[in-house]
């Protein structure tokens, strides 16, 4: 069975990538040499692992940022995680409507619908009905039947989501929404905002997507490595790295053995797009980076770059022969 865990393609780093392998200890040593305190706390959220790293001269703001950062992550999960049956989004999917929606859910939904409009439906948060179909098929080691796929695709349609401050509702029964394409980036935004609010001078946030500002505890800039596959050595390094980055890669969560099917769906066909094999989006916010990497993955290079320009983001794309 394939677990819906998004594997990491981006590799976070502080100063020297070699230091990351030694973990928090090396990081602390690096920090100590400069008289700087550092804190790294990892955890499990969004069905994957997350890690927050903060550095600065005073320990108190760092500890406070760890606490506040995880509180923000839990708030995101409570609002929009599909791993939680009691999240606001899960309830919306179950009931088809949700009164007095959680503000985080509201903000995420509005952005997802804006992006859907801007990408002309290439990014569509209402692809969720495809997921159980694929899950069941994968469990039985097959592809979904074409007629089932058509039925599910018929339920996709971002225009049929009504959003107001008091209510989110689907116009058609059977519709369901996923915000996995924007949620982790949004969480990175919230964590970075908390760290800045608490006066943390340097932060590196990995919520599945990445956000960083300041410098690494060793004094060198933050760096971010891009690897071709999980576990591989990075073949491209963003140095320095500040702002937000998000990667979408089909290979991250394959649904079939030949790699033809994966967790990103083209909302119009219900199948996986193959125009590119990997997109990394760099943007002023995690929300934009996360959403754009998914959207660009579906629409391909030319339209993807045009879309990125409109949101003030830039893209790094890769196309492997499958």
């Amino acid at each position: 069975m394939i677990r819906p865990t998004r594997r990491k393609i981006l590799i976070g780093g502080f100063g020297a990538l070699a230091a990351t392998a030694a973990g928090g200890l090396a990081l602390r040593r690096l920090a100590g040499d400069r008289g700087v305190e550092a804190r790294t706390r990892a955890g499990v959220a969004f069905g994957t692992t997350v890690a927050l790293t903060f550095a600065g001269p005073e320990p108190e703001p760092l500890d406070a940022a760890v606490t506040a950062g995880f509180a923000a992550i839990r708030a995101c999960e409570a609002a929009a995680s599909l791993f939680r049956a009691d999240s606001a989004l899960s309830r919306l999917n179950r009931d088809g409507r949700l009164d007095r929606p959680d503000p985080h859910l509201l903000r995420l939904t509005r952005f997802a619908l804006d992006l859907a409009e801007a990408s002309d439906g290439a990014f569509d948060p209402t692809v969720q009905p495809l997921w159980p179909l694929w899950r069941q098929a994968v469990d039985e080691d097959r592809r979904p039947a074409p007629e089932d796929l058509r039925t599910a695709v018929a339920l996709v349609g971002w225009r049929d989501v009504d959003v107001s401050d008091d209510r989110i509702a689907f116009r058609r029964p059977g519709m369901a929404m996923t915000l996995n394409g924007v949620l982790q980036g949004y969480a990175a935004d919230l964590v970075v905002a908390e760290a800045r609010r608490l006066g943390v001078p340097d932060a590196f946030v990995d919520t599945g997507e990445f956000g960083a500002y300041g410098a690494s505890p060793g004094g060198a800039p933050w760096r971010l490595g891009l690897a071709r596959a999980a576990g591989a050595a990075p073949d491209r390094v963003l140095d320095p790295f500040t702002g937000f980055a998000s990667t979408s890669a089909g290979a991250g969560t394959p649904l079939s053995r030949d790699g033809q099917d994966h967790h990103i769906f083209d909302p119009r066909t219900g199948r996986s797009p193959h125009l590119v094999s990997e997109v990394t989006a760099l943007a002023p916010s995690g929300l934009i980076a996360d959403g754009l990497s998914t959207a660009a993955y579906v629409v391909g290079e030319t339209r993807g770059r045009a879309l990125a320009d409109r949101f003030g983001a830039s893209l790094i794309m890769r196309r492997d022969v499958v």
Partner: peptide, 9 residues
């Protein structure tokens, strides 16, 4: 958790 190749497991 344990760190492997930059991410935590």
């Amino acid at each position: 958790m344990k760190q492997a190749a930059g991410s935590w497991e």
